[in-house]
Design a protein around this nucleic acid. Sequence first.
DNA 1: CCCCTGATTATCT
DNA 2: GATAATCAGGGGC
Length: 195
Amino acid sequence: MPTLDLAQRADLVAPQVLGAELCRGDVRLRITEVEAYLGLDDPASHAFRGPRGRAATMFGPPGHLYVYLSYGVHLAANIVCSPAGEASALLLRAGQVLDGEGLARERRGRPGLPAARLASGPGNLGRVLGLSLADDGAALGDEFVLTPARGPVEVVCGPRVGISQAADWPLRFWIPGDETVSAYRRSARAPRGDS
DNA sequence: CCCCTGATTATCT
DNA sequence: GATAATCAGGGGC
């Protein structure tokens, strides 16, 4: 029986969370894409400036959810990693709907969506799970349950999406070839890389 | 396919 | 007042 050790830095946890299953009520997802944020060491992390405001949750113990409002319109979920006080976390960027597709479609409210797009992208995944800000800080093992991958999973990594600071750190992890993985889009505010 | 833009609010300057 | 860990929709190629 494999185990999940969340009390280490998020980039080390990422390969274990890919392929793992996250269940909330009737909806079950297989996690296919995540991004690591490294707390005080990472200028792109909400936790970079310390345990203030919404980032306080990330400084708590591992195994809880950090849920935040993105661009004023979307709710995104992270799994808090590392021992309390370090504030690394994994942003859940995409998943495959394994159970509860009917409820997932109802929550998305867009008829005709391909199944692979239902939980593709952090905001869409949050919507499928029916997240609200009240879920911030929720402990895994209660309302939300995370189950390790059933077998070995292939993992690749690359630059993170949508951020302007440290955009080229290879902290986005995904399952290669999986159709649910979101499209890569570099932030318009990120410095141009050399070509 | 690609690039651009509006929506909407917590947080920061 | 400005920015942001996004998304969907519109226009162009």
